[in-house]
């Protein structure tokens, strides 16, 4: 019999809520209160997440964010700034000791990205893992991923781009050298793609989620059963949202 993992779908949450849910599930999974959990989610309002080690004010144009109604949040994972608007974001939370998860961090990136690659294949898109943390199709990035390990638990979250507006993204992100901004935008347009661009049509979130669910099930040989957050996770997430992810101390710490 196949192992059963939990599937969560939490659409349209603020950045601080999304990050707080990931952290709450880490605690709950680490305390053996819930099975390994895969979550598919979206962001409302659109949000820029920055990596743990990034400087908020060096990466993000806060005035433009305010003007365009874009939120921001610091992640507990490393990696770069990401503009979350047209995408399915996934997270997987699983014990470090789980036999399906390689001990080696780079190998585990590859393994978890394997589920996203299978998910994309289910939509008719061939892709491959490109270390350190990208998935590419025809040489262009379609997914970025970031992992942390806390409380003997692995959290990896990542994006699957359903569409992308590079010009809007660069109006919100700062670049190290304004003089080469136009070239940088042109480069990124060449290097980044989305499900819509590859397939030539929009795919609804639910269909992308279905394909990704199957991808995770195939990669890990498990069954994902749709569930909900426990009451304890909801309380924990509210606490983390308030005390950490929506707090100035956290978001402006670098």
């Amino acid at each position: 019999m196949k192992e059963i993992w939990r599937l969560l779908k939490t659409e349209d949450n603020a950045g601080a809520v999304n990050m707080a849910i990931d952290k709450a599930v880490i605690v709950s999974n680490s305390n053996k209160k819930v099975p390994p959990t895969v979550r598919f989610f979206t962001w409302k309002p659109p949000t820029i997440s920055i990596g743990y080690f990034q400087s908020l004010e060096e990466e993000i144009d806060l005035n433009n964010c305010k003007e365009f109604g874009v939120d921001y949040v610091r992640r507990i994972t490393g990696g770069g700034a990401v503009f979350h608007e047209e995408e399915l974001t996934y997270s997987i939370i699983i014990p470090e000791s789980h036999p399906q998860i390689p001990k080696n961090i780079m190998e585990s990136y590859g393994r978890i990205c394997g589920a996203v690659i299978k998910g994309l294949k289910n939509l008719g898109i061939e892709s491959e893992y490109k270390p350190i943390n990208d998935i590419i199709t025809s040489g262009k990035k379609i997914s970025g991923n970031a992992q942390t390990r806390k409380m003997k638990t692995v959290l990896q979250h990542g994006t699957v781009l359903t569409d992308v507006d590079v010009d809007k993204m660069f109006s919100l992100l700062k670049v190290p050298n304004e003089k080469i901004k136009d070239k940088l935008i042109a480069d990124v347009k060449e290097r980044v793609t989305s499900i819509k661009h590859v397939l030539g049509r929009e795919i609804p979130f639910d269909d992308v989620a279905k394909a990704m669910k199957k991808g995770f099930e195939e990669e890990f040989n498990v069954e994902l059963m749709e569930g909900t957050l426990t009451d304890e996770e909801i309380d924990l997430a509210k606490k983390f949202e308030k005390e950490c992810f929506s707090a100035r101390d956290w978001n402006h710490r670098r």
């Binding site: 990596g51 080690f53 400087s55 990696g79 770069g80 961090i105 942390t148």
Partner: peptide, 15 residues
Amino acid sequence: ISIMGDFFAYPEEAI
């Protein structure tokens, strides 16, 4: 000193 960027370090707090 502040060590910043889009790299990864485990555990993160060690930076």
